[in-house]
C-alpha cells in the first residue's frame, strides 16, 4: 500500500514541477502554519504544517516543505496538508496576480485573482524574536483581521499564503480569532526556480466561487466525520489504505488521498 501512496505523491509533485520558470529565489523562508480546530468528535486539536515561501524578485511562491523537499513519504504532515486545505499560492508581483491551487478531493482547483492590497496599519509595538526586532501591523484580508509581526532587517514585502505588503518580511501572522497562525522558523539563501503553477487539468474557478464551494462542502457539519460525503459515487477509482492506524481513501485517477476522518474546516477567507 505504501507503494501506492508514494506513486500518488510522486505524481502530485511531478505535476507541480511541470510548469515553466518565471523567476529564481533570492532566499527561502520557512514557516510553521497552525490551525486551532476540532476533530470529528468535537475535541480541540491543533493542526500544523511546515510551509516554504520561495522569494524571488518578481514573484513569490508559498508551498509545503514536503513539496519543496520533494518528500513523497507518507507522514502525519502529509495528512495535515490535506486536512488543513493548504493552498499553493504563487504571487506574481510583476503581473499583480495571485494564482492559488488547492486540492479538494477528488479535484484540484485553480483560481486567478488580482493581487490584494492590504491596508496595513503600522504600530509602535515591538517584539524581539531570536534577536530579530519585529514590529506589529494590523490589516484585514478577505474578511479576516490579521496581526502581523514583520522584520525590517529583512527588506522583503513577502509573506506566507496571500499575506504580504509590509516594509519587511512577515515573521509571524495571526488572525484575530487565534485560529490561523504563521510563524517563521528559518530563512535560507537557496537558489531555486520559481515556476508557474496551474495545469489545464485543474478545475478553474474564480476565487469567490471557490470560496463559496468550500463553504458549502467543507463547511458542512458532516464534513469532519465524513470528509467525502459530497463526492458522487464512481467519481474516482478509490482504494482504502490503512496507514499507521489511520484509514485513507486514495484516488487512483485523481492521484489524491484523503483521510476517512477529518477536522472541522476553518476558512482563511470569509469574503
Amino acid at each position: 500500500m505504501k507503494k501506492i501512496l508514494v506513486t500518488v505523491m510522486a505524481l502530485t509533485l511531478t505535476i507541480a514541477a511541470q510548469a515553466g520558470k518565471i523567476d529564481s529565489t533570492q532566499f527561502v523562508a520557512f514557516y510553521n502554519y497552525s490551525i486551532q480546530t476540532q476533530d470529528d468528535e468535537g475535541q480541540n486539536v491543533t493542526d500544523s504544517l511546515r510551509l516554504a515561501l520561495l522569494v524571488g524578485t518578481r514573484a513569490t511562491y508559498c508551498t509545503t516543505v514536503l513539496s519543496y523537499n520533494r518528500d513523497g513519504r507518507a507522514s502525519q504532515e502529509m495528512e495535515n496538508a490535506f486536512i488543513m486545505h493548504h493552498q499553493n499560492v504563487l504571487t506574481d508581483v510583476e503581473r499583480s496576480e495571485v494564482i492559488a491551487v488547492e486540492p479538494i478531493y477528488p479535484h484540484r482547483y485553480e483560481s486567478h485573482e488580482p493581487m490584494a492590497k492590504i491596508d496595513w496599519t503600522l504600530t509602535e509595538d515591538t517584539l524581539t524574536i531570536s534577536g530579530l526586532l519585529c514590529r506589529r501591523a494590523t490589516g484585514s484580508l478577505y474578511g479576516k483581521q490579521w496581526t502581523a509581526w514583520y522584520c525590517e532587517e529583512i527588506p522583503s514585502s513577502a509573506g506566507p499564503w496571500k499575506l504580504r505588503g509590509l516594509p519587511g518580511l512577515i515573521i509571524k501572522a495571526e488572525d484575530s480569532e487565534g485560529i490561523h497562525c504563521f510563524t517563521l522558523y528559518e530563512t535560507k539563501n537557496e537558489v531555486r526556480d520559481i515556476n508557474m503553477i496551474g495545469n489545464p487539468e485543474y478545475q478553474k474557478l474564480s476565487r469567490k466561487k471557490l470560496m463559496a464551494f468550500k463553504k458549502k462542502t467543507l463547511g458542512n457539519p458532516r464534513y469532519a466525520k465524513e470528509p467525502t460525503y459530497y463526492v458522487p459515487k464512481g467519481a474516482d477509482d478509490v482504494v482504502e489504505v490503512n496507514l499507521n492506524g489511520t484509514m485513507y481513501y486514495v484516488g487512483m485517477n485523481s492521484h489524491m488521498m484523503t483521510p476517512q476522518k477529518s477536522h472541522v474546516y476553518k476558512p482563511l477567507e470569509l469574503e
Binding site: Q26, T126, T128, S130, T183, Y185, T187, N189
Partner: peptide, 17 residues
C-alpha cells in the same frame, strides 16, 4: 552580500511591549 540566514528557535524569552 546575500541575506544573512536566520534560524528562529523556541527562545527562552520573548518581549512584546
Amino acid at each position: 552580500i546575500s541575506l544573512k540566514e536566520v534560524t528562529v528557535k523556541a527562545t527562552p524569552l520573548w518581549q512584546r511591549g
